[in-house]
Design a protein around this nucleic acid. Structure first.
Lengths: 236, 236
DNA sequence: AGCGTTATGTACGCTACCGTGCCGACGCTT
DNA sequence: AAGCGTCGGCACGGTAGCGTACATAACGCT
């Protein structure tokens, strides 16, 4: 039970719940292991389960067509997958891809909707989370439009590091190119530049963050703004 | 009273409300005139009023810094301004600029939050609206990233025409450049191309849509997708 | 009619990024 | 130890859009 509470507290949306709500939550959730590359939801698919990552994290990707796809949001320990159920919508807007393997708490859509009715604190917190996501989506739109690959790459690495909880990230240039919606060669050039500045080191599918403050310096302000927003709207 | 009902029905989020909810709404709302260029909300400002446009419409703009701004959403007769209050958040994520003069229904933030508690149908409908906006924000991010100015301009004109309810739009290239986050000269070239194809005609701050189907053809699919999404999630 | 203001056309060199394709290097498998 | 698939470096020409600047044209005011 204590260890289960520990698990609950590992997702930041679930901390600080009153005992009653925590018990209800525990009664219906299960722990699952997510593996890298797993597709949890296809765009416009019906949501069957809601996920609260613990040490895994998930990329939310807009698929325009077979050639054009772009990651627009991430959900790790600080977020969730399936938030549209909070709005009463059972379809998902985007492709959900497991980007960091690990565990997550899972609830069926039905149980989740029941739970919301009897858990005002959780419900309120999740609505606030949706606001954060909305604002981040809006900012991302502008960021992807105006900022250059190198700065966006730096931002992306920082966001990933936060969620992975490690300075070693298993990522290929190919994968990064898909996330940022650019050429693989474009990532290579940006990565070379960041490495030359001593901010990262990489070889064959592994990127190590060497100088986090330097990487923040190299990223656009969108990273810091995102962090500040989350801290403001969803404190602790 | 009949005319007031007419006004209520003029905003698509307010149609089809049960009589009780409509009465509560009418009791606290007022009609206001919005003039072009008026700033209704600065980013991160506290929301004092919620607006339901009737024949006006509002641009929601992300301001990254003084040079970089980008319109990411529009609210006309089909939408509202201040939806974050539905999520229990009193701050606004973006700059709200009146882009089409006209009238709107207005409610104070306080009254609006009261109203939501006693109006389940309205509340549900507004949550669905938030979902639509979220998905549109995500799609916009990808659209602005991948699609070219000419297609984006066509899309933007169509969206504006829908909300203005007229094929005559009062817009300068300068203004369009700000909305799309591109150079004024870039708009001029795209506009020339669209005019050469006989889709629009323009002179000194007025753009006339001549061939709507053709313009849809020239736009990216994001326009049709947006329309389809709204129709699916918020029918009638 | 004349004048200032605002809107649009156009031109310049420049940059970031594209699509593609090739090569070498690494590391896993057998 | 050899082989093969994956990953990263690099190079090519091409293009969309940038920043800037200046010229022309329409309108509105006196």
């Amino acid at each position: 039970m204590t260890s289960f509470m520990h698990v609950l507290n590992a997702n930041r949306l679930l901390t600080e719940l009153p005992a009653v709500e925590r018990d209800s939550f525990m009664a219906v959730c299960e722990t699952v292991e997510l593996s890298f590359g797993e597709v949890l939801l296809q765009p416009a698919e019906t949501i069957t389960h809601v996920y609260f990552p613990i040490d895994s994290f998930i990329s939310l990707i807009v698929v325009l067509d077979s050639d054009n796809r772009l990651e627009v949001a991430m959900a790790g320990r600080e977020g969730m997958l399936g938030s549209s159920l909070v709005l009463g919508i059972e379809e998902t807007p985007m492709l959900a891809l497991v980007q960091g393997a690990g565990s997550a708490l899972r609830i069926t859509a039905e149980n989740f909707q029941q739970l919301l009715l009897s858990s005002p604190v959780l419900h309120q917190r999740l609505k606030r989370y949706i606001y954060v996501v909305m604002k981040q989506l809006a900012t991302s739109a502008a960021c992807n439009h105006f900022h250059q690959i190198e700065a966006r790459l730096a931002r992306w690495l920082l966001m990933t590091q936060d969620r992975a909880g490690s300075d070693q990230l298993n990522l290929t240039h190919e994968f990064l190119a898909m996330m940022l919606g650019v050429r693989r060669a474009g990532i290579t050039l940006a990565a070379i530049a960041l490495q030359a500045r001593g901010l990262i080191r990489y070889q064959r599918g592994t990127i190590t963050v060497l100088d986090r403050p330097g990487l923040i310096e190299a990223s656009c302000e969108c990273y810091s703004k995102d962090c500040a927003l989350y801290a403001k709207i969803l404190p602790i």
